[in-house]
Amino acid sequence: MPRISAPTLVEHRANQRAAVLGAAEELAVEQGAAAVTVAAVAARTGIARPSVYAYFASADAILEALVHEGFERWRTALDAGIAATTSPEELVRGYFAAAAASAARGDHRLAGTLRDVRLAPEVRQTLLDSHRATAAPLAEAARALGVPDVDQALALLLTVLNHCLTRVEAGHEAATEGRTAAEFALGGLDRLARG
């Protein structure tokens, strides 16, 4: 029986699973999603291949878990960024600041790497629904500011957000980029609200 490296078997299994996903994330970011194979992950972690299969049935299952975990990090960062906001303007600023900080940590780079990963239809639908839910606070802010066409405003806000994330990933300072993009977005929302 293999030795466990944590106080309990549950903790050991959680640590091993996290190690597998950590190695897979490194491989994906360094070499692309195609580099994430069970053999490569096993080699990177030092965990025997059969043990990797105890956590994930295939490389595709590892990639699906990576997509989920990456998205959860993103959602958690955004939720934290807007948790204490009390006005739509603060919400937009908090959202952009949190998104930029998350991109600076590399979270968005992983999402970009995994963008073309083939996912089971139900997994893809869950992610689409979750993505809509994370964008909902921006739509609410636009509505609260009196923007008549909230769907159009949200599409424009997400375009500004993507540009902000691209600049952060290119090496620009996250706090400055988040602040600048938020102010630009708020100016646009104000103009849309005034017609």
Rank of each mutant, 00 (worst) to 15 (best):
V38H: 01
A182V: 06
V10N: 10
D60K: 02
P7I: 00
W74T: 03
R13M: 14
D107N: 14
G46R: 08
A24K: 07
M1N: 06
R109P: 04
H131L: 15
T159K: 11
T176A: 14
R105L: 12
A181Q: 10
A135Q: 11
H68I: 12
E26K: 14
H108Y: 14
S102V: 05
F56G: 03
L138H: 09
R49V: 08
A59E: 09
L78A: 02
H172E: 15
P50K: 11
R105C: 07
A155I: 12
T134G: 02
A153W: 03
T166Y: 09
V67N: 02
H131M: 13
P137W: 06
A14P: 06
N15E: 14
G94Y: 14
W74P: 00
F184T: 13
G146I: 10
D129Y: 02
G188K: 05
L157V: 04
S58R: 10
H163K: 11
P137Y: 07
D107S: 12
A100Y: 03
R109I: 06
V36N: 00
I47E: 07
A80R: 11
E25T: 12
R75K: 07
G171W: 02
T176F: 13
S130N: 06
M1T: 05
G22H: 08
L127Y: 13
H163M: 14
A120T: 09
A80T: 05
L156W: 07
A136R: 06
G171L: 08
R109H: 08
A103C: 09
V117R: 12
T113V: 15
R44H: 14
A65I: 00
R109D: 12
A120I: 05
E177D: 01
R167M: 11
A135D: 02
A6T: 03
A28S: 04
H68Q: 13
R191A: 14
G81V: 01
